[in-house]
Design a protein around this nucleic acid. Structure first.
Lengths: 224, 224
DNA sequence: AGGTTAGATGAAGAAAGCTTCAGTTCGGCG
DNA sequence: CGCCGAACTGAAGCTTTCTTCATCTAACCT
């Protein structure tokens, strides 16, 4: 039975940061471990590649031993899944956030903002994205990716529904197109080596691409 | 104790070296084997998944022994690469073919034909596509995929250059958009379980999507 | 201070599958 | 018919990395 006592009766060697409300050391230790392990997973992944990633290396880089790793993750697969999930949640979160902000805007505004936000998150650490994609298929990542995809899908559909211009198309279908285009193009950017300077023009073009589509949707006669 | 000399580690698929067939077929016998092995690779992949695919199973399904397999492929990796390459060449070939046929057509015609052809090849054996994608990252498939991508890219650019309407955009950039959208959307269709009946409307929408873009390109003022 | 437990350790066990190679069979050719 | 190399066979070897668990340590509570 665990008591959630937040008290620190005698703080012996804990010198600094006395002002912050600290979690009890017992919890802090383990929480730090979990976080360090996830961070280490990505670092090792980037440094040696998924083929040479071993649980021992990850633990070592996190500053703990393998045994500790297995205390928090059931196995290697679970570790990698957790790392993937964390990354995907960041992306999905960013998309949901823009979609919320863009409610009620014009279609062009939505398109621009959405593409901008998506590319920003993806490109922030391109290498991490690529590395995690490569692991995804070893770890049943499809499930995780799909779940996040659905979150984004719902957010996009909801946003589209509030546009000033009436979108004369099934929002579900439209959202699928947008997601497909964004994912597809960003993946091309990630996996082929596009020079830094071309990157911006491709970004703009993707915005134009998506705008053109949404506006064409608004312009067309209602389809059954 | 082991000698510290040039130890040949014939370890698990760690060879970065030759991936070409070891032997070129001299007798008809061997040519048949090579083909059977590639076919078997895909069958085993579909039946048991990449995790449980072993060289022995592949050989067995092809009706030969493991030793024979290793006579034609340097290692497991090489075998899988060959299977992936074969599949990708089919796709690239189909795209090149439409692009040739569509020379001189309207942008709308090109878009429709291109999307149609692309989805046809990809969807013919969806399962094979998905299975091979999942293997790709274990096998340095990025290189192969990229090479095929470039072939398609060139074909698309060449086609766009012959359109009746002047495309007021960098054809390179436009081709990137088209490929990104097609790859992205088709991947969504493959990996999420889209019911058969929705599939056709998504197909049409992708055509509309691409058309809208190309025509918007033709309509816009020339960009520098 | 002493008892209790969450947390950490890391050597060793176990499994699994790729790859080899010594020996056999097959097919063509002189 | 008999030789020779091409093609085939498949049991065994070899190595790696995951995962466990008996033991130790530090933190907390009374």
């Amino acid at each position: 039975m665990k008591k959630a006592s937040v008290r620190r009766s005698h703080l012996h060697q804990t010198s600094h940061a006395a002002l912050e409300p600290r979690k009890s050391p017992v919890q802090a230790r383990s929480a730090a471990s979990v976080d360090a392990l996830l961070e280490a997973t990505i670092q090792v992944l980037l440094r040696v590649g998924k083929e040479r990633l071993t649980t021992t290396k990850v633990a070592s880089r996190a500053g703990v031993s393998v045994g500790t790793l297995y205390q928090y993750f059931p196995n290697k697969r679970g570790l990698l899944q957790a790392a993937l999930r964390r990354h995907m949640e960041e992306v999905a979160g960013a998309v949901e956030s823009v979609c919320r902000n863009q409610q009620g805007n014009t279609l062009a505004g939505m398109a621009t903002a959405l593409v901008g936000a998506f590319l920003d998150v993806k490109m922030r650490d391109m290498k991490t994205s690529v590395a995690l994609y490569s692991v995804s298929s070893d770890v049943d990542g499809a499930k995780i990716v799909q779940r996040m995809s659905e979150r984004m899908h719902r957010a996009i559909v909801a946003m589209l529904a509030t546009s000033r211009e009436p979108l004369k198309a099934d929002p579900q279908v439209a959202a699928t197109m947008l997601q497909g285009a964004m994912a597809g193009v960003s993946r091309r950017l990630l996996e082929s080596d596009v020079p830094e300077n071309e990157l911006d023009s491709l970004r703009r073009e993707l915005m134009f691409f998506v705008c053109a589509y949404l506006e064409a949707c608004a312009a067309r006669t209602l389809i059954s």
